[in-house]
Design a protein around this nucleic acid. Structure first.
Lengths: 186, 186
DNA sequence: GGAAGCATGTAAAGTGTTACATGATTTT
DNA sequence: AAAATCATGTAACACTTTACATGCTTCC
């Protein structure tokens, strides 16, 4: 059996949720898991082709007049692969690669004023992400919850709450930096 | 001027903190920012060579007997580049690419029991990361704080607190899943 | 009639990870 | 004597992002 990556399971999972075309998968990802697993057209189309070649999805023509469109369905093999992945131990170690936090690590190079500006910027970024999740992503997941599909909503809520927590944490850091005078080095 | 990436600034920043060799930069990263910006030997060495070619660092021989070693210093241009990066707006959007959360998104495919196992696994992963940060990374940053270098400690604390928050959040989710019976679909 | 959105893809560049390769020194 | 750690690098592979390329349909 072929080795599948998380990106492959993103396709399989989205198809299982009723999303049909490559275009729609990319769009659906943008308004759902993009904070946790973003993707692009140039990833989606080759991935679907590969999945079809391996018999995990089937493709059929779904053109509307002159506009070409392919619709995909998950095969039994595809469903098995998806579920086995969900059941298997999570091997990739948790990390949170983020340029903002990397900058923060080296912020002792800056003056107190500039440090505050940096922290503020990182906080604003967290705030913007939280807002985006809360206003544009969570509401789309709610109707699914009513239909017995709970986890898209759960994941959106996890994102909202985590980003809000980071935002508050950075707010407290700002307050502390404003109060405490910078210490002498050495 | 050449375009520098976050990885370049990781090198410059570590050198500014007193780390001297490529080997030491990789090791220092492993016990400090690796959760937010991991690196590898195969990234460090070419990166240092490039930085030297662009005049942002200088290299000198620091061999001990037959064991070869290069020591690097940040030039004025290098310091300027680092500080300008720290001052510039954070452009990269905040995302938290994580396979665990991606799985969670599709967890409606699983039985309630399997859902609980998945959530538990993700929570264990968060717990392990929190522990690693709290026990092995935070203590190393504390002595720096006493010397007026505060941000390595701040970043470690941010990591500890955030992972602890996620851990608790997932713990509550587990409790809710245990209580609530799975809803019928459709 | 123009803009936005639907729809599919390829090519190239950039970035990151893993495997390979070598050898010295220090610690157990 | 063996294991762990110090030290530097190359090569291959995997993955992601950006740019390019095209054309239809729907909404304003």
């Amino acid at each position: 059996m072929v080795k599948l990556r998380p990106a492959s399971f993103l396709m399989l999972g989205m198809l299982r949720l009723g999303v049909r075309s490559g275009y729609a998968i990319k769009k659906a990802t943008d308004i759902s898991v993009r904070f946790f697993w973003p993707t692009s057209f140039s990833q989606v189309y080759p991935e679907l082709t590969e999945l079809e070649q391996n018999g995990l999805v089937t493709r059929r023509d779904d053109s509307h007049g002159a506009r070409a469109r392919s619709a995909y369905d998950v095969t039994e093999d595809g469903e098995t692969a998806l579920i086995e992945w969900l059941r298997s131990p999570v091997t990739t170690p948790l990390k949170f690669r983020d340029e903002g936090v990397l900058r923060l690590y080296f912020a002792d190079e800056l003056s107190r004023e500039e440090q505050l500006r940096l922290v503020w910027r990182i906080r604003e970024r967290a705030r913007a992400s939280e807002l985006e999740l809360r206003e544009n992503i969570l509401p789309l997941a709610d109707p699914l919850t009513g239909k017995g599909i709970a986890f898209p909503g759960i994941v959106a809520k996890l994102g909202v709450d985590t980003f809000a927590y980071v935002e508050q944490w950075l707010g407290r850091l700002e307050a502390e930096l404003e109060e405490a005078p910078p210490q002498d080095r050495g």
